[in-house]
Write a protein that binds this DNA or RNA. Structure first.
Ligand SMILES: [Mn+2]
Ligand SMILES: [Mn+2]
Ligand SMILES: [Zn+2]
Ligand SMILES: [Zn+2]
Lengths: 137, 137
DNA sequence: TTTGTAGTTTATAATTATTCTAAACTACAA
DNA sequence: TTGTAGTTTAGAATAATTATAAACTACAAA
């Protein structure tokens, strides 16, 4: 799906040199069927599993931060005191399952709001995000 | 507003001994006009300001955790890698202002949803929370 | 092609938030 | 009044992240 060339372009277009490490990380993040909701820890594990290239943890931290600044990933709110990221950078919503501690994407248009309050004076709405927490039926 | 007696009852009713420290902390948290969205750090500062009783940081951590387990406060999602709490334990929504990094409560009935997706098989909806991010107009 | 340099990686140290530990203290039931 | 379980506390330990600085590398310009 994602050719190496595309990844290189993606990196170059955001002013990031396409290093061996960044290409491995980008492949892991973006060459997936489903959105990846991850921490540095889970990403590190995923990389270890797929390739035998050893990438230092510092580089993974650096790269994730760089990808975030470049807008290739976005940070998610959590209550785990860990940085948590989302490869889906479009505005969207989430199901949250406290049992598995997993998020699942909900397309933006799957939620329709009928009424929302007026923002405080001098402010306008930038984004609106819904989190639907689940439990066993 | 909140008498000492009420606080003592609140503590007793949740199986917590009404110690000097817990009463000070509870007063700080619950004897307010508006909801308090806080971290252990901001709570500690608030306590320092109000009273000259020195309470150890460990006790503040312990008490906040105890209050959370008792359901007197709830934990909020954040991207700051810090535990963040809310004295409003009712189901409600938030405005989030990235400039001031402050949350403001939105009453549950101020948001009305027209359409939400079906939960995955075997699961039902426990809670639904909306975060409206703001920006300068 | 070679070379200079800014950008990048890396091991490791430092920092920050939180939890753990164990000794001293205290609320309160008997 | 007293025994004890519950609580507070200082300080140690842990976990996640960020900072540091030396080695390495992509790549533009010569
Ligand atoms: Mn937490
Ligand atoms: Mn963060
Ligand atoms: Zn997502
Ligand atoms: Zn709130």
């Amino acid at each position: 799906m994602y050719q190496k060339k595309e990844i290189v372009n993606k990196l170059r277009s955001s002013g990031l040199r396409p290093t061996k490490q960044r290409i491995v990380i980008a492949k892991n993040l973006f060459d997936r069927k489903k959105t990846f909701h991850f921490t540095v820890e889970t990403l590190n594990i995923a990389i270890h599993r797929k390739c035998n290239e050893r990438i230092s943890l510092a580089t993974i931290y650096n790269t994730v931060e760089a990808f975030k600044r470049a807008g290739h990933i976005r940070e998610i709110l959590t209550s785990n005191n860990k940085n948590y990221y989302d490869t889906n950078i479009k505005s969207h919503h989430h199901f949250y399952d406290p049992d598995t501690k997993e998020l699942t994407d909900i397309d933006y248009q799957e939620v329709v709001l009928n009424k929302i309050p007026n923002p405080p004076k001098g402010k306008k709405i930038k984004d609106l995000e819904v989190v639907i927490s689940l439990q066993k039926k």
